[in-house]
Amino acid sequence: MSQENVSPPELPVVWRPRKGRVVAYGFAGLIIVGAVVLAILLPPPFTVVDKVAMVVLGAAVAGVLHLLGRCRVEADETGVTLVNALRVHRYEWPEVLAVTLTDSEPWAKIDFTDGATIGAMGLQGSEKERTVQQVRQLAALIRERGEARDEGGNGGRAGDDD
């Protein structure tokens, strides 16, 4: 199926990886439970401070896993939001040029008019066909609403009739 055969999805839409979320939040829960159980079962040479530190360490590791689990790409009427592990990027549709996904990359990349190319961690290459379909949907939205929609050279903005 070519990209042109995919119609844009209804907005708003959120794309996020399934496997990455399950693994991240599954391990986060396991680590929290393990830290609490370990803190409860620590023998007497360990103090309350040690036990609290064990739970805090588990919570810190779970927090890092949350950063990985929250990754997503959101599209709405006005633009696209990339929520990656450490940063959130917001771009309006006319600023978006293209989305690409190659076999050698862990996630899709999105090109913008300011010259930036940002990895979209919410579109994980490890999910193969699911991500390919999501990238095709995003590409259809970019063709419909973004800079790339106009091949005539008017900057991709609707209504520019110069």
Rank of each mutant, 00 (worst) to 15 (best):
Phe46Thr: 02
Gly69Asp: 11
His66Pro: 13
Asn5Arg: 02
Ala53Arg: 02
Val64Gly: 15
Asp50Pro: 01
Leu68Thr: 13
Ala85His: 09
Ala62Val: 10
Gly69Pro: 11
Ala39Asp: 12
Pro9Ile: 13
Ala62Phe: 08
Leu68His: 15
Val48Gln: 04
His89Ser: 02
Ala28Asn: 06
Asp76Ile: 15
Ile31Gln: 04
Ala60Met: 14
Gly20Glu: 01
Glu10Gln: 09
Val48Gly: 07
Pro106Tyr: 00
Glu92Phe: 05
His66Cys: 15
Arg70Val: 14
Arg72Gly: 12
Pro8Trp: 04
Val56Asp: 06
Val99His: 08
Ile31Glu: 09
Val49Gln: 04
Leu42Asn: 02
Val61Arg: 14
Pro12Ile: 06
Leu101His: 04
Gly20Leu: 07
His66Asn: 15
Ala28Asp: 04
Leu65Ala: 13
Arg21Phe: 04
Leu101Ile: 03
Val36His: 05
Ile31Trp: 13
Val52Gly: 05
Gly58Asp: 11
Gly79Phe: 08
Gly29Arg: 15
Asp103Ala: 09
Leu101Val: 04
Arg90Met: 09
Glu105Val: 03
Ala28Ile: 09
Glu105Met: 14
Pro45Ser: 03
Val36Glu: 05
Gly26Phe: 01
Glu95Asn: 06
Ile40Cys: 10
Asp103Phe: 07
Pro17Val: 04
Ser104Cys: 07
Leu30Phe: 02
Glu74Ile: 15
Lys51Thr: 09
Thr81Trp: 02
Tyr25Ser: 07
Pro8Phe: 08
Gly34Cys: 11
Ile32Arg: 11
Leu11Ser: 13
Leu38Met: 13
Ala24Gln: 00
Pro9His: 12
Ala35Glu: 06
Val22Met: 01
Val23Cys: 05
Val56Leu: 14
Val73Thr: 15
Val99Cys: 03
Thr47Asp: 00
Val73Tyr: 11
Asp76Tyr: 13
Val33Tyr: 08
Asp50Arg: 03
Leu38Ile: 12
Leu86Ala: 00
Thr100Lys: 12
Gly20Lys: 04
Asn5Tyr: 00
Pro43Tyr: 01
Val55Trp: 04
Pro17Ser: 07
Arg87Ala: 03
Gly63Asp: 08
Arg18Phe: 01
Glu77Gln: 13
Phe27Met: 00
Pro45His: 05
Leu97Arg: 08
Ile32Val: 15
Arg72Tyr: 13
Val55Leu: 05
Ser104Met: 02
Val49Ala: 00
Pro9Tyr: 14
Leu67Asn: 14
Val99Phe: 01
Tyr25Gly: 05
Val55Cys: 04
Val36Trp: 06
Leu101Arg: 04
Gly34Leu: 10
Ala53His: 02
Glu74Asn: 14
Val23Asp: 00
Ala75Trp: 07
Gly26His: 01
Leu42Gly: 10
Leu11Gln: 10
His89Asp: 02
Leu65Asp: 11
Val55Asn: 00
Leu57Phe: 08
Pro45Phe: 05
Leu38Ser: 10
Leu86Glu: 05
